[in-house]
Amino acid sequence: MIGLVGIVVVFVMVFGGYTLAGGKFGIILNALPFELMMILGAATGAFLIGNDASVVKRTARDLPRLFRGARWKPQDYRDLLCLLFQLIRVSRQDPVAAEEHIENPKESAIFARYPRIRADREAVALIADTMRAASMNYDDPHQVEEVLEKRMEAATHDALRPSEALQTVADGLPALGIVAAVLGVIKTMSSIDQPPEILGKLIGGALVGTFLGVFLAYGFVGPFAARLRTVVEEDAHFYQLIREVLVANLHNHATNLCIEVGRQNAPEHFRPSFAELEDSLNALKAEAA
């Protein structure tokens, strides 16, 4: 919702200020279709040239996230900590039973309690692979942590490619606006014998191209790219929490301490309170008793 408010504010402030200053929309409206065709068409073509099909598809798929925000919500962070608590507890009490949950999450009663997490392949794979490392008695948990860190860096880098592609478009839009403006000047020069009032309209129409390039770059596409990057980075915290908890488990810390490490490393606006999480864990313990 706040993104839509921002779009409205941009339009109202820019064009409202132009109107209050005595500006007329006639020249802008006459030039707008052709300038948009040149600028947006060239930007789209450049976007297709600079990216492969997978990035193009993912960019189109990720655009709604600009308004929806991060995928993982506070409830998901609490559910994740509860899921990891149950898995760690089972793995320490009965490693064979834990292996059944890890190897077949779709049939796992523990994973079934948290369908949003179970539906995410990366989260499930990260949990399963790390807990397999624990079952293999790795002598150096730091080595596992390093492997996980590199894995998540690669995943985050790949997830950021749509936002980087949008930022590249934003960087090029002002120059494409100049291209459209230059073409407008060329058109004006072919009518140099016309009276000043006609030349003024032609020059004004040419300058619309420069305006649109800068306006679209810094008013919309650039902020869209920055917002998408923020959303991706926020979602990455979810997977980092998995790493923190399971690496603490590899160090053989107490189960509750492993979960507290994860809670403390959750972003503040997603972090469940200590009392809230404690109540959820106590409920799980009561069910298992």
Rank of each mutant, 00 (worst) to 15 (best):
M1Y: 10
G3V: 15
V10W: 02
F11W: 06
V12Y: 07
V14S: 09
T19A: 15
G22V: 12
G23K: 01
K24Y: 05
K24R: 10
F25A: 15
F25K: 03
N30G: 05
A31G: 00
A31L: 07
L36M: 14
A42L: 13
G45L: 13
F47T: 09
A60G: 12
R61I: 12
R61H: 08
D62W: 09
P64A: 11
P64F: 12
L66G: 06
D76P: 00
D76W: 10
D79S: 15
L81W: 06
V90G: 00
S91L: 09
D94V: 12
V96F: 11
V96M: 14
I102Q: 03
E122H: 14
L126H: 07
L126R: 04
D129C: 05
R132N: 10
Y138G: 08
Q143T: 12
L173Q: 02
P174N: 08
A175K: 06
A175T: 15
L176F: 10
A180S: 14
A181C: 14
I186R: 06
I186E: 01
Q194C: 06
P196C: 08
P196V: 12
I198Y: 03
F211K: 01
V214M: 08
F215I: 11
L216R: 08
V221C: 06
P223N: 07
R227P: 01
E234W: 12
Y239Q: 04
R243S: 05
L250T: 12
H251N: 04
T255Y: 09
L257S: 09
N265L: 14
A266P: 01
A283D: 00
